[in-house]
């Protein structure tokens, strides 16, 4: 167990390092000269001389390797530099915005889990009957509707038409519901199929015949025998979906005027604010790697066969 965790932590650190290289390379190779933009932002005329002065000031003229080492060295110690656009400390911005995105992803993950389990079990309890067809129809609909459109529909339905919930802002639970639902729709749809199909597959295993021979009802077998068998599978799929939620946050946060990391990232991209973009990408990748690490540990705890390999 300890061996497994230390090994996975080592792998995660290597992965994180590689991810930071990719972040840096991507941002550096993006078109456009940031020095020109900064010069324009400062209200000065972007004469070649002034642009050169700005470039020198923010260290653009150093060799790439040096720039990477400078940036990564600072980033590891928690200093993500100064935003080119606002001149503010990126780390402070990140800290303020992280809790907002965290609220979004945590709430959405819980809703997606509950919703997908409910839909999946609905189908498995009445296979090929009406509830199953409804569940499959909803999953298809949810998986094929773009998130920005789901968000717009949510705002139209719950804020404009029924006037139940506010359509923007981050101030208390009632403002959280719509963004949560918007982000949860796609993962819930995908995961409900994982649950439904996983349960069906588990129900055709030989041990289900044993469970039937014990005199257990189909419903009891679904919960007692099939559910524990799909748990590792479900956690894996959930991990992937939660990891992808950072991408969804980029779309959903501006939609509901949430000033989270997604919104920050988008603003950074728009103004070629390299420091912000790099920092956000690194945070997103760290989150992804962290989620995968947690998933591996959770699978280890729920599947005794894997647990044994590592004990």
């Amino acid at each position: 167990m300890v061996h497994f965790i230390s090994k996975r932590l080592q792998q995660s650190l290597i992965l994180l390092f590689l991810a930071s290289v990719v972040c840096f390379t991507l941002v550096v190779s993006a078109p456009g000269n940031v020095a020109v933009l900064i010069a324009e932002l400062r209200g000065a005329v972007a004469t070649p001389g002034y642009v050169e002065q700005v470039a020198e000031e923010i260290g653009l003229n150093k060799p790439l390797l040096m720039r990477y080492v400078d940036w990564f060295g600072d980033a590891v110690s928690g200093d993500f530099g100064i935003s080119y656009r606002t001149g503010q400390d990126v780390s402070a911005d990140l800290a303020a915005r992280m809790s907002i995105t965290g609220t979004l992803i945590a709430g959405s993950a819980i809703i997606a889990t509950l919703l997908s389990l409910a839909l999946g079990f609905l189908g498995a309890l009445w296979p090929y009957k009406l509830p199953d067809r409804v569940s499959r129809g909803l999953a298809l609909l949810g998986a094929s509707t773009p998130t920005f459109f789901v968000g717009a529909l949510m705002i139209y339905a719950f804020s404009v038409h029924f006037q139940l919930l506010p359509s923007f802002g981050f101030s208390g639970p009632e403002t959280w519901v719509l963004p949560w639902l918007t982000v949860a729709v796609l993962p819930a749809a995908v995961l409900s199929r994982v649950v439904r199909i996983g349960l069906e597959e588990a129900m055709s295993s030989p041990f289900v015949l044993t469970a039937k021979s014990k005199g257990l009802s189909r419903t009891a077998i679904l919960f007692r025998d099939a559910l524990p068998n799909i748990t590792p599978l479900f956690i894996n799929a959930l991990g992937t979906q939660v990891g992808l939620m950072t991408a969804t946050a980029i779309i959903v946060e501006p939609l509901f005027s949430w000033q989270g990391l997604g919104d920050y990232f988008l603003a950074g991209v728009r103004f070629r604010d390299f420091m912000v973009v790099q920092a956000c990408l690194l945070i997103f990748l760290t989150f992804f790697i962290l989620v995968n690490l947690i998933v591996d540990l959770a699978v280890l705890l729920t599947d005794p066969r894997i647990r044994r390999q590592w004990s």
């Binding site: 295993s205 041990f207 015949l209 044993t210 524990p228 068998n229 748990t231």
Partner: peptide, 12 residues
């Protein structure tokens, strides 16, 4: 049952 390797639930 015939095959005890698969007749028991592996995760319980």
């Amino acid at each position: 049952f015939q095959d005890p390797m698969s007749a028991l639930n592996p995760v319980r």
